[in-house]
């Protein structure tokens, strides 16, 4: 879609950096900027809780769709519970029609959908960052209490959970794993449901 004026920017939220994300990026060999964010800065700036999360940004640098689940196909429909082909069709519609596209949301609607950080969220982010710093310095075991505090302060963040589990033995140090946590949702959605415009008749 690049020739039509869409720039795709991917950001790997990966504390292990190139060691974690590198082989995936090399295999995909993308033409678009494929960035690595070891400190999950983009997740903090945009208040994201999971991956993949997409944000649509117009030519003036304004958000026209706030963070939401952003798969480009239905491989994970069990988790998304949404037909993601409609999301991709919406992206194409926005690229073609800009603000006239029903997928480009008005300011009021975006603000209604935006989740804004609270004091606990900011403290969670600081704990995650100190944990990440200690881990990067080789103090991986000492990082764990900070990761746990981030998870406790912001339990809805799968980024804080899954990233920390991936940096050590989740069973041993966190007494949990992804499968157990998803089961504990007991039918609650893993991703917040996408809210796309109704298909026109």
């Amino acid at each position: 879609m690049r020739p039509r004026g869409l720039e795709i920017i991917t950001v790997a939220l990966d504390s292990r950096g190139a060691e974690g994300a590198g082989e995936w990026i090399r295999a995909a060999n993308p033409e678009h900027p494929s960035l690595i964010d070891v400190e999950h800065r983009v997740a903090a700036l945009y208040h994201m809780v999971n991956v993949p999360t997409g944000v649509w940004i117009d030519e003036a640098g304004r958000i026209v769709r706030p963070p939401e689940v952003a798969f480009v196909d239905n491989r994970w429909i069990e988790y998304t519970k949404t037909d993601m082909t409609r999301y991709v069709a919406g992206l194409r519609d926005w690229v073609a029609r800009g603000a006239a596209s029903p997928f480009a949301l008005g300011k009021g609607e975006i603000r209604r959908r935006l989740s804004l950080p609270t004091a606990d969220h900011a403290l969670a982010a600081a704990n995650f960052r100190l944990g990440q710093y200690l881990h990067a310095q080789g103090h991986w075991e000492d990082a764990i209490p900070y990761f746990k505090r981030a998870q406790a302060l912001r339990p809805e963040s799968w980024c804080y959970k899954r990233q920390a589990w991936a940096l050590s033995d989740a069973e041993k140090y966190y007494e949990t794993n992804f499968k157990k946590e998803v089961e504990a949702l007991a039918g609650e959605p893993y991703y917040a449901p996408l809210d796309l415009p109704q298909e026109s008749a």
């Binding site: 720039e7 991917t10 790997a12 990026i25 964010d37």
Partner: peptide, 28 residues
């Protein structure tokens, strides 16, 4: 501002004037 695999730095602001689809992912 973040680096790519080759260490080249990119800022979101350098794409002003184009539509951007910003999407996060992870290997974990």
């Amino acid at each position: 501002t973040l680096p790519d695999l080759d260490g080249r730095l990119f800022s979101l602001s350098q794409f002003r004037g184009r539509k951007v689809f910003l999407v996060t992912w992870a290997s974990w």
